[in-house]
Design a binder for these strands. Structure first.
Lengths: 146, 146
DNA sequence: GTAATACCTAAACCTGACTTTAAGTCAAGG
DNA sequence: CCTTGACTTAAAGTCAGGTTTAGGTATTAC
């Protein structure tokens, strides 16, 4: 069993954040001894899961829901799985969206490289990122081959 | 030249958002006719860039900086290119991070699939540290990296 | 016996990115 | 004439995810 300060230290989080998470219901079974929070293995595992779910773009209120399901036992396995499936799908489309933004960024890097060489944007301005002419596309591809 | 309402329609954005962007200095050269905003090609291109930069995780104040550079002419090409290069690098590491989170989600889906089949987490929980099946091991390793 | 430290609470505050509200201008249509 | 609709503003409100503050308790250290 650990105090809030020890857990904060272990996870590199401010104490205030842990209290905030508790207030938001992220530790449903958290015990106390004369008012003082006692973090056990359950809470440490919960915190690991919280960090993962936050990286996956989940909101606090959805994480709370998940934590509640966890403390309700095996009957909620399907719900929990469905939540992860939904997150997985969402995440995949997020990554796809970011890859399209990344293509745009790569184009802009190439674009300004050309503009610097030309001293103006006149030549390069007429080109649009999505359907680059073949001969420019090669230049573009070569410029960004890793 | 378009009115704010037409541009809102074209980009699928609320009028209030366009006014907010203007107030934040995202359209440095925006013209007005007796108080009314007139959006031209420059502003439409700016909006396309804004959408891209937002997807790339940039804050409004940084986008404003970029737009100011754009209206300062060719001398700012290197700064603009550097900003896109920095964003590109940032974006690539964001995508890598999200892929690790995605692996964790895939692992959790698999985990709960097993738990549903077993009726409990006992087997799957003990399976985690040592003898994880080959097809999921990489996923597990990635999910618990860092 | 008092100072420092770690814990507690409720409530106020903060940031970013909008959104909503209240109040007003202006042109066109019936 | 007057209503409707599209535009304008400043200022207040909203939401998420914390952080800070103010005031209190309990233990240890000198």
């Amino acid at each position: 069993m650990y105090t809030i300060g020890q857990v904060a230290e272990m996870f590199g989080l401010p104490v205030s954040t842990l209290r905030y998470y508790d207030k938001q219901g992220l530790f449903p079974g958290l015990e106390r001894t004369s008012g003082i929070r006692r973090f056990g293995d359950t809470e440490l595992e919960a915190l690991r899961v919280i960090e993962c779910l936050k990286k996956a773009g989940m909101e606090i209120k959805d994480i709370r829901l998940f934590m509640e399901w966890c403390s309700e036992g095996p009957s909620t396995y399907p719900k929990r799985k469905a939540m992860f499936e939904e997150r997985k799908t969402h995440m995949e489309s997020e990554i796809a969206k970011m890859n399209r933004a990344l293509d745009m960024l790569r184009f802009k890097c190439w674009y300004y490289e050309q503009a610097i060489q030309d001293g103006n944007e006149d030549r390069v301005k007429t080109l649009i990122p999505d359907n680059l002419p073949e001969e420019i596309k090669d230049t573009y591809d070569n410029a960004h081959a890793q």
